[in-house]
Design a protein around this nucleic acid. Structure first.
Lengths: 335, 335
DNA sequence: CTGTTAGCGCCTTCAT
DNA sequence: ATGAAGGCGCTAACAG
């Protein structure tokens, strides 16, 4: 591989001159630029990005660290991040944190291979984040709290979202409402659950522990939980699934048992993933402002990078989207 | 930021010793390792990834260059790539090529910031790919042909897939079959179209140019094309959409005009995206082995990296997946 | 087992 | 306008 040295030699100039010419710095004559460019062309010269970054101590790229690159869930978020990043002339790379501590994502964090990072990946330890963030390496976290002046929190208001979903069900006349939860260590899940509890309480509906059941945020988990609920012979009037994936799993369980949604039971999800609109019946859910979250995150990174004083915590509102998985008719409740 | 020098000084050893200790190279005593690690800990030392890569001239990471990170279409492909990459102890980063020549993706290619790359991004020029690939930087392309001994082609047999889809429609008794195409400059589209034409020919069905219409691979495009077809008052018995997105757009157009699929018209797509199973009616389509393509791609990169002699071109078979958008009853055809 | 040292390829100050 | 030279932080001979 040709280096800048080779180019300089071939063009018959000093390395520094070649560097100037290559980087378009106004210090060399047109003739020299021409010579250098031609030499570079002939040698098929490509600059070595690392050497350059090392010298500049700046990469002009930010990283998006995701627990799973292939998750369709991230689509909108990525779009938000991507657009803002590009419009600021920065590069964006995405990497996955499968593998936990030794994942690519952790490595990028620890080795400061980028100028800033946005994290949505449970399996990266808070400790790593805390010890990596610093003035010239701001980090935005979307799924937790980290105690460090250089990390910014962008959250959606999961609690309010959970509250709204539950209250919506209540207002439709349902009183026994189950909650199919995500993993217990999930902050998001916890918040949604708090909202659910609060809504129940505000409407003077006693919460029953048998109606809280774990679905692990997966479609499979939602399917299993729903089957259990069905097996209990005492179906609630409505179910609030802590995310859409689980709700879709639930839909499958119901359809297998020939239980009609929403005629026999009302269900609502959370997230508003792409699929929600296409399942049968179309799933009512709580939309998360994912695009906005992504865009805001990058925005904050740039502000931090510019040394500006910024808000450290953001809370984005959710929207209830009504489709057809909830009805207004209360079914006969036996409890 | 603390450097290895600081660590060495604090531990009271030479830099090389610190380096050995930090990298777990069997050359230092346990006591020294301990001293160094402690010093590193105290200084909150993090290695500078660039310096390290620069020195090693090896990054242990491969890049996946996609035209759009947020496309749900890539999900399975990414999964295949990710798993194989991880199981080989390499890192994976994904980046987008929005922005064309000056995109992050192009930059990664040109500046050799990774050890190998997998490309599925129309808007990266073949020229850049050709001039970047070399012995220590193998590239696999999923969407074109590039003339360079260090680029490998992994293709899905689009032609056969197009043929199969068309023949399937023919066997179901349909004779007037429209083709809603993708962008004309798309290699994939062209192949699918060839397959379509060939099947028609083999079954002695004349192809009519009015039945070929451009849908641009987008849902919107499929919607528009379908409306045009409907407006012509002379609907074909079946439509082969060159991808699922367009077919889903078509479904919308039909439902608006109250035309029943598959009773009034049969349609088939291509890709088998996640949604295909969930639309109404579930879409029959041609599945692309995306996971396999991803896995195979990385695999080939590793082989190249290991200096092995390898096959330069692969052609993966497609599967026809029957769902409910095609019927066996031919409708009355007027042409 | 530990220390000295020479670069990796590039950028950039300083001198010419 | 151009050239010489000193690092950026790290690794890996080589010497002890």
């Amino acid at each position: 591989m040709a280096t800048i040295k080779d180019v300089a030699k071939r063009a018959g100039v000093a390395v520094s001159t070649a560097s100037y010419a290559l980087n378009g710095i106004e210090k060399v004559s047109a003739a020299t630029i021409d010579k250098v460019l031609r030499a570079a062309e002939e040698l098929n010269y490509q600059k070595n990005g690392f050497a350059s970054d090392l010298k500049r101590t700046k990469t002009n790229t930010i990283a998006l660290l995701l627990s799973d690159l292939s998750g369709p869930y991230f689509s909108e978020l990525i779009k938000g991040v991507q657009e803002v990043t590009a419009s600021n002339g920065f590069d964006l790379i995405a990497c996955s944190s499968v593998g936990g501590e030794k994942s690519t994502a952790s490595k990028f964090l620890k080795e400061k291979r980028v100028d800033g990072a946005i994290i949505l990946a449970q399996n990266i330890s808070t400790e790593v984040i805390r010890s990596s963030a610093r003035k010239d390496f701001p980090i935005v976290v979307l799924d937790r709290k980290v105690d460090n002046p250089f990390v910014i929190h962008v959250e959606v208001n999961n609690r309010q979202g959970g509250y709204d979903a539950t209250e919506y069900l209540i207002e439709k006349g349902h009183r026994s409402i189950a909650y199919v939860s995500g993993p217990l260590n999930s902050h998001d899940n916890e918040e949604r659950f708090q909202g659910y509890q609060q809504a129940l309480k505000d409407h003077k509906i006693p919460s029953q522990s048998r109606l809280k059941i774990n679905g692990d945020f997966t479609r499979e988990g939602g399917y299993r939980s729903t089957k259990m609920l069905i097996a209990q012979q005492n179906l609630p009037a409505a179910i609030f699934y802590a995310n859409d994936e689980m709700a879709i799993g639930g839909l499958k369980a119901f359809s297998e048992k020939n239980i009609k949604v929403p005629d026999d039971i009302s269900i609502i999800g959370f997230d508003d993933i792409l699929l929600a609109e296409y399942v049968t019946p179309p799933l009512s859910t709580v939309r998360q402002p994912k695009y906005e979250a992504g865009a805001l995150s990058v925005h904050m990174i740039f502000q931090m990078l510019a040394g500006e004083e910024v808000e450290k915590s953001f809370n984005l509102p959710t929207d209830l989207v009504e489709r057809q998985s909830v009805t207004g008719h209360e079914r006969l409740d036996k409890d």
